[in-house]
Design a protein around this nucleic acid. Structure first.
Lengths: 294, 294
DNA sequence: ACCTGCTTATAGTTAAAAGCTATAGATATA
DNA sequence: TATATCTATAGCTTTTAACTATAAGCAGGT
């Protein structure tokens, strides 16, 4: 007993005619008569009484009709659900994200929500490279925005943009008057930096080291937002990605370009190479790639 | 998308293997691989990730699995219901019945209930021939136990048994001493008879008329039970079918055979010729035909 | 490093099923 | 009585679901 035959049966019962039902179903009348006969044999039930002029449901046919209608509707509902599912999966997208990407990423996501309003997002604020890699490999995230290039065969990483770091100082700070600074200008300032294991620390420290300098670290924080607040209070200066300052403009904080060839980074979009992505996620990925951060 | 393919899919997902699933499903592994591939193409979804060693569900496959499992279970439940329905229809049997058949018929039905305990019965106590015929033709009853032969092409009637009428008298009545009576013995007694339109009246009156007699009608009743009560109170005598007296023995009432070739009747089982009967009803009909009333 | 065994995919074929057209047969209606 | 309409039957074609045989990929043992 297949759903198709049940649909045939329902149509015949509704039309009280094989020939009309056949027209509606876009099959020939003999094919339909045959199908119903096979259904009757299969069920060992006589569903219709027929004479050469007209047909009508038997008692048992009436009862069967109700049941068949019910299961066919359930099946059609299932098909609708599946069609939706084909687009959006289970309706969840999990994204790994570095703090400094949040601001522009949310602009992309806002646009995406217009097309897929019901999708639910989960953000995974991943920090060290190990965590980034394992969260991708274990499927915890569909993709990750990261500043770390992936050295793993199973992971595809796609550079999104290249950005310089900038110095963030309070508006009344002496350096604020300059149009650009050098690392030597910074080295003697009270410096705010990410803690070990948090993003940007490595980039910043390496740049100093390559110029054989060392910053005067007075504060170690976890979140860039905290660093900003500290700068705002005049506790010191810090170095932030350009995009962070652009998308998160803070009153009284000035961003200054730094003349160091080492102080810049690339932001990547990374995901498991053969992970199957729903059309919804693919569209999001393409929007992310197309988005002009600057 | 057919239920069959969904079942295939579920088995593969459960077994995490095409070859094991193929064994369970009693089809070859290539057939199964093919079927799943077709399902995937049909749905435009990748359900499994495969390498040559093992397979696993994709994210979307997991979600689809849940839905598929649900609809397949619903379908299997539907099939069970239908199988039951094939036996018992909608679980109702409507029977037309004359009063004098109730007593033996309920013995048959009691036995029938052992096999089909959940079937619900409705009894239609039909009286005149017109009503008997119309209730059969209009499908109000599945079948009728009647003492009237049916003269209708669409109705099949099957004689069940032939029975004499008997005289019912109170035990102290003068006639009670006899072993059999003649109509002339009865003609001068206070007589209890069914009202116009109720069963037995016609049979009884015709018998008297054929012997050119006429009973001394003093009471006209509707239900045979009422007649019995009256006899018990010594109000008069009445004529009842043998089966009624046999199955409904009343204390102090004696049933006497009547020596009249006219005073007997045939009880029939009648039903619409081409009405489709469930196996349950067919079994009941056959039990009725086999039941030995005497 | 190279078999062995297990698993899935592909190719080619067969069998079953679902469809078609043409037409017979039956019966209401004109 | 002829006509139109409806279902059933017969015979054929197309599509689909199976099958067998075999290739190809990989893990594990030798």
């Amino acid at each position: 007993m297949e759903i198709r035959k049940l649909k045939y049966f329902i149509t015949v019962a509704d039309e009280q005619s094989f020939s009309k039902a056949a027209q509606i179903l876009h099959i020939s009348q003999p094919s339909l008569s045959n199908a119903i006969m096979k259904l009757e044999n299969d069920l060992k039930m006589e569903l219709f009484k027929r004479d050469t002029r007209s047909i009508y449901l038997t008692d048992i046919g009436e009862v069967f009709y109700q049941r068949a209608l019910h299961i066919v509707r359930q099946f059609e509902h299932f098909q609708l659900e599946v069609a939706e599912m084909a687009e959006t999966g289970d309706g969840h997208i999990n994204i790994g994200i570095i703090e400094s990407a949040k601001f522009w990423l949310f602009k992309v996501i806002k646009a995406f929500k217009n097309t897929y309003p019901d999708i639910h997002f989960q953000f995974n604020e991943v920090l060290g490279q190990k965590e980034v890699i394992s969260s991708i490999l274990e499927g915890d995230v569909h993709f990750t925005i990261t500043n770390q290039p992936m050295h793993n065969q199973l992971i595809t990483s796609h550079p999104l943009y290249h950005e310089p770091f900038m110095l963030a100082v309070y508006e009344t700070h002496p350096l604020a008057r300059k149009t650009s600074v050098e690392l030597t200008d910074i080295a003697n300032q009270a410096f705010i930096i990410s803690r070990e294991g948090f993003q940007t620390r490595g980039d910043v420290l390496q740049a100093f080291m390559k110029e054989q300098l060392y910053p005067k670290i007075e504060y170690e924080i976890e979140r860039l937002e905290t660093a900003c607040k500290m700068v705002e209070e005049g506790l010191g200066v810090t170095i932030l990605p350009k995009s962070y300052l652009d998308y998160n403009p803070t009153p009284h904080i000035i961003g200054l370009p730094i003349t160091s060839i080492f102080l810049n980074r690339t932001v990547y979009l990374a995901y498991l190479k053969d992970r199957s992505m729903t059309p919804a996620i693919q569209k999001l990925l393409s929007k992310i790639r197309q988005f002009e951060v600057f």
